[in-house]
């Protein structure tokens, strides 16, 4: 039975991440996806253009990340006075108020980790496309799956909107350039971190370097 199966056979199987059912993989036509019979979760898909798309998105993501951090996110006005919100100013206000742990947490979750994820992605896809440095690609993939749960730009973007709703009627609000950059950046981050499972990249890795 399964006990006698070799390592090679194991790579033909996939386990549903939602309900743990076991499936034997089948070849899919381009653009199709396999779903779990029990719970409907997507098991895997065949998307030949994924690498190119993800690479383009990762590069634009880095550009939008820079834009979102250089320019003001929101302009708020009260009785003729105006203040602008940038990511850095928001964090420095926390830090000046003595909320060091909160400031460190926000910096990591909204600035550092998302940037690491997107750079990790860009370098990894470059390596996968060139078919070079398998060991480095493996390390990048492993760090990627540790980093992804802690990337929270999407949640931060929604939070800025909620903060604006809380302020509505009390101050005047104008959106800055960086806000739209942040929205696009969050969209790209969402696609790269949540739309595909990390297993997809590992399968490409296996094919590229003929591991097994």
């Amino acid at each position: 039975m399964m006990h006698q199966k070799t390592q090679d056979d194991l790579s033909k199987y996939v386990m549903c991440d939602r309900c743990n059912s076991l499936y034997r993989k089948v070849k899919l036509p381009a653009g199709k996806r396999a779903r779990c019979k029990k719970c409907g979760a997507i098991l895997y898909r065949y998307d030949p253009a994924y690498l190119d798309r993800a690479f383009a998105l990762a590069l634009s993501g880095i550009i939008f990340f820079v834009l979102a951090n250089l320019f003001p996110l929101i302009h708020v006005g009260l009785w003729g006075k105006e203040h602008t919100l940038t990511l850095f100013s928001a964090i420095s206000v926390l830090e000046e108020g003595g909320f060091y742990i909160v400031a460190i947490g926000v910096t990591l979750l909204v600035l550092v980790i998302p940037l690491l994820v997107i750079v990790d992605y860009a370098v990894l896809i470059l390596l996968l496309k060139l078919g070079k440095r398998p060991e480095m690609a493996r390390r990048l993939l492993v760090s990627l799956s540790h980093l992804i749960p802690w990337s929270m730009v999407d949640i931060f973007t929604v939070s800025v909107l909620i903060a604006l709703v809380k302020l509505s009627g009390k101050v005047t609000i104008h959106f800055g350039v960086a806000f739209w950059a942040l929205v696009i950046y969050a969209g790209i981050d969402l696609y790269l971190t949540r739309a595909r499972r990390i297993g997809t990249l590992w399968e490409i890795y296996e094919r590229r370097y003929h591991v097994q």
Partner: peptide
Amino acid sequence: MVDIFVVTALSGMVTFDSFQIVAGTGAT
């Protein structure tokens, strides 16, 4: 984490002399 990010955004935006929002002790 939404609540913490809302507090971050609010305290970053509302820093007027007559109207100021800062994080509270519970935030940490």
